[in-house]
Each structure stands twice: as C-alpha cells, then as structure tokens.
Nucleic acid binder design. Structure first.
Length: 453
RNA sequence: GGCGCGUUCGUCUAUCGGCUAGGACAUAGCCCUCUCAAGGCUGAAAGACGGGUUCAAUUCCCGUACGCGCUACCA
C-alpha cells in the first residue's frame, strides 16, 4: 500500500453484536494489521429511537473478547466520554457540527436542494462503476425507479441526516482509505461514490464481503442464536478459534492451511482473495477449531479460561491449590470440550469426598455386589503402591486384573464410579493421580460401604 | 417489476483452459483403548441447467433456473 491504510468498523448499536458484523470487523482489523495500518471504531448511533447504551457495551465487549483492539475510537462506551485519535468524536451522535458544515458545502455547490421539507442530493444521472477489490468492477446503471427520480434524501424533514450522508462524511473526514463492509451495501455504494465526487475527493477503495447464512441457508437474524457473539462467549469457545473460523468463512490462505493462529492470519490475510459467495455457518467446524486451539494453548491460559467457566457453573476452585486445579483441568484438555461443558466433566475433583454424588445409572452398572470384593482388593493394592503416579497405578491395577483373571474394565469402571460418580470422565489413572492417595482411597471406601451385599 | 451479486462433495473451500476435480469439518468402516474423546488407516461424497468459444471447459461468453442484496425522509 502506497498510502497508509485506514479502515473502520462502524456498527449501529441497535441491539447486539451480530456474527456477521464481527466478521466484518475482523476483516477490517486483519487488513489493518496486515498492512500496518490504522483500525478505527466508529459508532453509528444516529437512530436515537433504536440505539441503546447496553448495545454499545455488548459490541465493545465482543470486540475486546475477540482481541480486536482499535487504534482510534472511543475509550469507553459513553458517547460523551474520552476517545483516542485525532478525528473524534467517534460517536456520530456527537458529530452534528461536521454534518452541518458539509451540508452547507453541498448547498454552496448547488448539489443539494430542498423539497417537501427535506434536503435532497442531486444524484448523478450517469451509470456509476464501483471498483471493488473483492467483487470486481460493478456497473450500476439507474434502476427504473431511479430513472424517474434519481435524487435522494440527505437530511430528513425532521432535520436528521441519513446514513448514506453521515457515513460518507465521516469516512471522508476520518481519512478512511478502504471501506470493507457487508455485501448488503454494494448497490448503495453508487450513492456514496457520487457524494465523494460532489465533495471533490476520490472515493476510498471498496471491498464488499459476502453475508453469513444460517446452516439451512436462510438469513441470520436476531432471533437466531448463532447470530449473537455473546452466545459464543457464553458457550466457552476460545476467542482465537472463533477468529480463525470467521476468517475462513469467505477467505482461505493460498496454501490451504486451516488451523491458524491470529498472528498467522494477520500475516497471510489478503482482501483480494476473499470469496464472492455467501457462506453458511457450520458450528461443528468451529468446534473442531476450538479443540485444536485449546490443545495447543498455553496451560496457564487454559486453566484461566476453565476456572472462569467453572465459576459460572457454580464450582468454586479458589479453595484448592493452584497446582491441583491446573492438574485437574489438564486431564480434561484432550477431550475437546467447550468450556461450558467442562463443569460436569471435572466437577468431582472439587466435590467433598463424603458428598460426592453418584449418577444413578453409573451406580447401578458399576457398583454392584459382584464388584464389591474386587474393589476392596483394588483399594488394598492402591494403598500399597510406592507412589501414586498414573503409571504405577495402571501397573498395579493391571496386575490385579491378571491375578483375578478379569478384564481391566471390571476393575476400572467400579473404581471410576467410586471416585467420580460417573461412567465417563478423564483417564482413570491420571484422575487418581490428581486426586491423590488420600482422597482416592476415601472415595473407594465410601463406595464399598454403599454396595449392599 | 427494475438493477446488482452469487451458484464445485452435506458444509467451508482449492482450481485462475489440460482433472484420475485436491483439502478440511461432518459422515461410514477398521485399528488403538479403562469410559468418553483424541489419534492412525480406509471409504462414500461435488462442478445448478442449456447453449456457445476452443484441440480441450469447473475454469471464458450468453441464456435459463434458483438464492441473496438494493430499490426508504432504516442502518
């Protein structure tokens, strides 16, 4: 890029952060980071009837959660609060002066006139070609309706300016070089280009990205759970997995590599290689990427995220030693779970030995009278091992199984249920090692007593 | 209605005239295995339709169908 790249994400705070909006933000952010440019956040809060403070907060939280930091924009979600950058305010509701000045300019140039109490823009009668980095050159002749009256409203009769106008004015004044936005804006770009021309400046470069669809191919709307970024936060996806997945919806690196860290995405991202067709959202693939990211993420980060979600599920890990919590969560790491599903998988680690609850089905299947004696023998074997390491325990259990002439499962499952209350869970030997000798034996004793002979 | 954009395995995609159409997720089978996973191996699975252009079309052009967007004093 010869000139320094300046891009922006310009959401309207009318409800929530849409997954498509998040991807638009991501493509802008990746483009800026790739070119060492500036990523700007601008809040288009001109629709006072529909805008809410809560919506602004949700958008900011979502962007931050995904790690998309902005170089210029609001410091807080307060429209009258401080901002970073030379072109503030970054809330359109605070930029009335700029719009009035630009309106006067258009009037002076004779391209704006009043009609029915509103201010109209004298639109170009000629077809406009929209050069688009993604779609290619798009020729936009006038439609039949526009043939009748191509002019359009700049300022409503109630005095408020419309989106097309404020959007262009801000892009112009903020020095935006590339407008990367949803395909739904493609047709209207002719209006924007005409406005830039009226102001006597070159329009920015455009890149219209395709929309994201529901799995069934329908449009994603507010009532679709998958449309809300907050749901992915609550479900416990690793943010880098969502970033990775979103980047792959409509874009792919030349070498076909799919599992990519955020820094790899930044270095490989190319706007011109973005697809032109809409893509359906596939949560299974997102989950697969989540698993790949969690398995390689820093252990301390895995624990941090895990602990946060366990807390949400009502499991307080703060009374346990950090090393214990870390070791416990580590046994669940290879299981590929969303953080939201971690709680029922590892809750037994944090339950009191005497209060561990048993899944009825697990109890009926594994803690049978026939299992009582083997369990007692296993308990005795475990009590006598030189240490309580997984490998040692495995050897002891297998030796006993051989001695009794039973399959290892006949010992493993009763022991598993005794110590965890469930039939499924982390590797038994590793889970025992984490629990430690004292807790493990205590739980086995309790289970043995529970079995009615 | 008009204008615009799109259409490769179930899904996301690769292919920029030579294709036995590749990969990933999902899926089926097998192996491994203490459960659940993970992992390994193998398999099934695609070019909307019809015309051109060309020695050769998934790739280029036209048309049709289907989907989507815009067509607002919404953003």
């Amino acid at each position: 890029m010869s000139q320094s790249v300046r891009v922006r994400f310009a959401p309207s705070p009318t409800g929530y952060l849409h997954i498509g909006g998040a991807r638009t933000a991501l493509f802008n952010w990746l483009f800026a980071r790739h070119h060492g440019g500036t990523f700007i956040l601008r809040v288009e809060d001109t629709d006072t009837a529909r805008n809410t403070q809560a919506a602004v907060d949700v958008i900011f939280q979502g962007l931050k959660w995904m790690g998309m930091d902005w170089d210029e924009g609001p410091e807080t979600s307060d429209a009258t609060g401080p901002s970073r950058g030379e072109f503030g305010s970054y809330f359109q509701s605070q930029r009335g002066e700029n719009y009035r000045r630009r309106i006067a300019e258009l009037r002076d140039k004779g391209v704006a006139y009043e009609r029915d109490g509103a201010l109209f823009f004298r639109m170009s009668r000629e077809p406009i070609t929209i050069p688009d980095i993604i779609v290619g050159d798009v020729h936009r002749p006038l439609t039949d309706r526009e043939e009748q009256d191509p002019d359009w409203v700049l300022v409503r009769s109630d005095g408020t300016p419309v989106f097309h106008f404020v959007n262009v004015v801000d892009d112009l004044e903020m020095g935006i070089t590339h407008v990367i936005r949803g395909e739904d804006h493609l047709a209207n770009t002719a209006k924007h280009i005409a406005l830039f021309r009226a102001f006597g400046v070159a329009a920015p470069h455009y890149g219209h990205i395709p929309l994201i669809l529901n799995p069934d191919g329908s449009k994603m709307s507010k009532r679709d759970r998958g449309a809300h970024v907050t749901n992915y936060m609550a479900d416990g996806y690793a943010p880098e997995a969502l970033i990775n997945y979103l980047a792959l919806l409509g874009w792919s690196p030349k070498d076909g590599k799919e599992f990519l860290s955020t820094s790899e995405l930044i270095s490989r991202f190319e706007l011109s290689h973005v697809n032109r067709s809409a893509a359906r959202f596939d949560e299974k693939k997102l989950e697969a990427l989540h698993f790949e990211h969690t398995r390689i993420m820093d252990p301390s980060r895995f624990v941090k995220l895990g602990v946060e979600h366990l807390a949400k599920a009502g499991i307080d890990t703060s009374t346990f030693p950090e090393t214990y919590v870390a070791a416990a969560l580590e046994t669940a790491r290879e299981k590929g779970k969303l953080f939201k599903d971690l709680a029922p998988f590892v809750d037994f680690y944090f339950a009191a030995d005497e209060a561990l609850s048993f899944d009825p089905d697990a109890k009926a299947k594994a803690l049978t009278p026939a299992a009582k004696q083997p369990l007692e023998q296993l308990r005795a074997a475990f009590a006598g091992t030189p240490n309580f390491k997984a490998a040692t325990l495995e050897a002891a259990l297998k030796q006993l199984a051989a001695q009794l002439g039973v399959k290892v499962g006949a010992l493993v499952q009763p022991c598993r249920v005794a110590c965890t209350g469930k039939l499924v869970g982390p590797s038994l030997y590793h889970l025992l090692e984490v629990l430690g000798r004292e807790k493990s034996l205590k739980r086995m004793d309790r289970a043995i007593q529970l079995i009615v002979a």
